[in-house]
Amino acid sequence: MKLGGIKSVENAHDDSVWAVTWVPATAIRPPLLLTGSLDETVRLWRSDDLILERTNTGHCLGVASVAAHPLGSIAASSSLDSFVRVFDVDSNTTLATLEAPPSEVWQMRFDPKGAILAVAGGGSASVKLWDTSTWELIATLSIPRQEGPKPTDKSGSKKFVLSVAWSPDGKRLACGSMDGTISVFDVPRAKFLHHLEGHFMPVRSLVYSPYDPRLLFTASDDGNVHMYDAEGKALVGTMSGHASWVLCVDVSPDGAAIATGSSDRSVRLWDLSMRASVQTMSNHTDQVWGVAFRPPGGNDVRSGRLASVSDDKSVSLYDYS
């Protein structure tokens, strides 16, 4: 289990790169890498040479999140002004512009079947679900107010939702918030299930294991990656090693490893069987805001790829084997 650097594009964007995701392969083209940056652009890259395919403009303020439909034809990008732009990957035609004021937009994720786009709603303490055929808001999953001792407390009572993750079967949705709690929802019934506790600092990224619908990995500003049994409400493991905030986490398609990116400028690969960091990549010179394993599919299924993006304006691609 290791990572090998393939290519790194310096100045891939004109400013910090904040978001990355893979657009799955379609019948006519291989998978593409989608990145979003503070420079207000979204860029598409063809691997493995990371050739710039296209630059999408139109966002104001920085692009904070990008998401790709599992079929690979549609993608969404969102910026700090809380607009979501849904566009056709190949033609760059805008399919929809979504906003749900006063809810903000942070992380976005398409569900595994591609029917719903989940959007972390920031200060609205909710996750918005959009129908991907009509682009209408179908549900708002709100985190119930906790019975706090001090209801007037500025931060304590509200859950500021930063991140979302779908379970592989699409039935569960987990979201991470500023105060470190993770909320789990039953999507078909649009119902809040429970909180997962253990973090006390923002959870900026979380991801379900592709094989175990119960297993959830969370990355937090406290520098740790937690492993939860999301159904049993139990913390099953803690992985420490990063020197600063863990900003992003992604799980490998084979489910054997996770990759994390951190403010400490490193990308770490963790062996889940050993529950230990097996490799640290330190090619970035600033915070690593996104890591993404390439989903299986396309022509070269065998070779795993991991991409990372950073405040240093670069995009890096690694071979995962």
């Binding site: 400013d15 910090s16 904040w18 503070l38 920085g62 920031g122 500021f160 930063l162």
Partner: peptide, 15 residues
């Protein structure tokens, strides 16, 4: 403005 946007990105709940 860029610096403030970075700050917002780091501390989204700070209105």
């Amino acid at each position: 403005i860029k610096t403030l946007l970075r700050a917002i990105h780091l501390a989204p709940s700070n209105y």
